[in-house]
Amino acid sequence: MSSEVGSVSVHDVQTRDWRPWVGLLARLVLGVTYLVAGVDKGSNLEQTKRATRAFQILPYDLANLWGTFMPFLEIVLGVLLIIGLLTRFTAVLGGLLMLAFIIGIASVWARGISIECGCFGGGGATVTTHYPIDLLRDTGLLICAIWLAVLPRTRAGLDGRLWG
């Protein structure tokens, strides 16, 4: 496929660099996660607002605002990551967001609040929490974001096609 080749820089071809492939994987994992999470949360805004309030970090109105805006932000980040546009910028933003989620979950865990994180829609109080798994997953996603922020050149991304 000649167009495939066009999206990879000459340098990559010459050195058979494996890192752009890891970058592609990181982009897709992080991007699809954000897209799915954003659509799930956005399809039930009232629930997402309540799940955000359940973290008991932001005051009522601000939590509602953040709960409304976050799904939109996640969808935009997800789409940009999947198509590979402005990869470094979206990776930094997505990484900061992931860091905020990690802090949020760690904070409710430390305060002994029993909630479902609402990471993929749903959320609110629960009897059975699974904070360690939530944190492990978000840490993995944060690593994807850091990888992309450091090495934003990836395979099959729009960045490569537009600017090489």
Partner: peptide, 30 residues
């Protein structure tokens, strides 16, 4: 390197979209 469309313009569009989304969220959340 290829000279595609200006990166700054595309970044600006994304930022504007996010800001507009923020305002929409402000209204919707109220």
């Amino acid at each position: 390197p290829k000279e595609g469309p200006s990166k700054a313009i595309i970044a600006a569009i994304v930022v504007v979209v996010l800001v507009l989304g923020g305002f929409a969220a402000l209204i919707v959340s109220q």
